Structures are given as C-alpha cells and as structure tokens.
Amino acid sequence: MKKPRTLLVLSVLALVSASVGISPVTGRRQTQGETIELQATANSSSLDQQIAQELALIHDSEHQGLEPLMMGRLWAKLASDYQDESALGRAEDAYNHALPLLEPSSSERVDYAVVLDNLGSLYGMMGNYDASERCCKRALAIREKLGDPLEIARGKVHLAGLHVAMHKYKGARREALEAYNEMVALKNPDTDDIVATLFTLTYATCTRGGCSDSLEYARKAWSLARGAFPADSLQVGLAHMALGYAEWKAEIKDGPDEEMRKGIEIVKARAPQNNAYLLNVLEQYRVYLEAVHREPEAKQVAVEEAQLKKQSGKCANCTVSVYGLDHGP
C-alpha cells in the first residue's frame, strides 16, 4: 500500500477500513468489539496511556481465561493504537496475535476481515504493497462469502484506495464507483463510508484525467463532511485536502492553497505528530507548491516532512506475516 504513494491515499485507506465504529484518533474503522468502550481506557487522554492500560487488560484477561473472540478484539485494538503511534513492528505483532483468535469465530467473521484490512493498511505504511494487496483481497473475499452487501462495498472501496496508491487508477475508479453506487442504493446511513468513498473517487478519477468529475466528488465529500462532523474533525480536514487537490487539478487558481492550508491546520491539531495522516497532507501540499513553482515554500515543507519521517521511522525488523503471504482466504 505504500510505494511512491499518491497523495492522501493512506489517509483514505485508513478511513475506509470497514466495520462498525471509527477510531477517534485515526478514523480507521474498528471491529464491533473495539467499539465497546473499555473501562480501562475510557478516560485516558494519551495514546501511550491507552496502550499501557490495554496491555495490562490483555495480561489480566489472559489469566482470567477470556474467550478467544474477545481476546482477539483486545489485541486488535492494541494493534490499531500501536499503528496510530507508528510503532509498526509492535502493531504487526499485535495483529498477528489477534487474527488467529478471531479466525475460528464464524459468527463474527467480519471482525477477522476488518483486522486483515488494517494489517493491509500497516503493510502500506511499511512500503510493502504486495502484502497489503493480498490482505485486502482476502478481506474482500471473506466479506463476499458472508454476503452482506454493505460489507462488500466497504471491502471494495478499501481495495480501491490501495489501487490508487499502486497507480492502478482504472481499477481503483471502477471499484470505488461500484462501492459508492452500492452504498447509495442501500441507503447506507453511515456518512463515514460515503465520505471516504468520495475521497477515493476524487484521487482515482482526477489522476486519469477526469478532473471535472473529481471536483464534483470532492465537493460532495466536503458538503457531507461539513454537515456530519465537527469543523475541526479529521474528516473535515481531509475533505479540505481532497477539495484542494481537485481544485488544483481542475486549474482553479485561488482555491487550492487555502483549502490545503486549512486541511493541514486541522490534521496537525488532530493527528499524532508522527502519524501517516500528517505526512500525507504535507506531501500533497509540497507537491502542489512545486507544481506552481513556489520552490522556497516547498523546501520548507520538505524539511518538516523529513523531520517527521525521522521521528516515525520504518520498521527495520519487520517481516511479512503469514496473513500477507500468497494463499487463499
């Protein structure tokens, strides 16, 4: 999911990992178990504190013999928080604890698909697109076997976001458009799904030359996000970025810079300082500045990007999980 990535694709992917509930830090979708507030973390204001409390809860739950499904959900929540903190190796280890615990549960198979998608998102952050794509395809296959049309649409849009990152724009647009039409037909009330799908369509479409359509998708996403989320929410920040991108590509001169600056301001306030969201929005703005020949400003943004990348780093000791290897779902 991550090679020379296309602008905000990782942010889009994080928003469209599908199930029930949204992580307040990243927007990445959570399993049903993750949406149940854990008493140990309910009042925590720090991600580090949450992780420490989750580790303690996992330790206690293992000693108490908590059922595998619930243990899997606890490990999945921990993995998600490690990923938010850019502790990539620890996130992968936690996902690998979660998946075998969730896999045997046919009644909650969707949880397994969600965690596979999130593992795919992690591999994107590591730069391993092949493993990421295998995870996302396996997750979609599971959803298709379950037969829930909304879950299938969510799986398609997650895969579409990945394909934008892989520069497979034709397939990405087809998958995202199918997902969008299916969600609309189902009268899906979850605005997060629709907004994230419109983000993906914005980037997939304009990259293939359809910038008028892209601008329409971005405007729809902005309108929905503004009406459904607080003005300083991460969703609204990303909507500013998508709209700025579409306006830039449509050669609208006055709007793009203002939209992107607003988006960056919100993302800086809402995302952890080493979070992939912040790197992605800065990258988009730098590429825009370079394109409009504002090199001194672009160099300043590049310095900020380099500092953040140094803080977050890569996962030097990570290998590919068995779940990212080439075998069936």
Rank of each mutant, 00 (worst) to 15 (best):
R219D: 11
D326A: 14
C136R: 12
A239N: 05
A221V: 02
V157L: 05
S17Y: 01
S214T: 08
S321E: 04
L99S: 02
S19E: 05
R174S: 13
R294M: 10
K268Y: 06
V157A: 04
T191N: 04
K268L: 08
A76L: 07
K249T: 11
R29N: 02
V322E: 12
S105T: 14
R208M: 14
M241A: 13
A218G: 07
G124A: 00
L198G: 00
Q311L: 12
Q32H: 10
A76V: 03
Q30W: 09
Q284H: 11
T191S: 12
K262G: 04
N188G: 00
A221I: 09
V114T: 15
L8M: 14
A56H: 02
E92T: 04
S19R: 14
A79R: 05
A79Q: 09
L146G: 02
A42D: 03
V25G: 03
A139M: 12
I22R: 14
R29G: 15
L10F: 08
E305I: 15
S212F: 03
E178A: 06
D84Y: 06
L119T: 11
A271F: 00
P189G: 11
H240E: 13
Y203I: 10
G313S: 03
L55V: 09
A302P: 02
G244P: 01
V16S: 06
S45E: 02
L38P: 01
E258D: 12
C315A: 12
L243A: 10
L13P: 00
L15S: 12
S121P: 00
N274D: 07
N188L: 09
A131P: 05
K77R: 12
R226A: 05
E178Q: 15
G227D: 14
R219K: 07
C318R: 01
E259G: 00
P296R: 11
W222A: 06
S61N: 04
H167F: 03
H59F: 13
P189F: 01
K299R: 13
L146M: 14
K77M: 02
R270T: 14
A91H: 06
H240P: 00
Y245P: 02
K77T: 11
R143A: 04
L201E: 01
R173I: 05
L78V: 11
P149M: 10
H59D: 15
A221H: 01
G227A: 15
L47T: 08
A160F: 06
D81C: 05
D48K: 09
K268M: 09
F229S: 08
G65K: 04
G27T: 13
S106R: 14
G161R: 08
C136I: 00
A18W: 07
T41K: 03
S107L: 11
G72D: 08
V25H: 00
M260K: 04
G72F: 06
Y112D: 03
E34R: 10
Q32L: 09
R154H: 03
L140A: 01
A306H: 11
L140P: 07
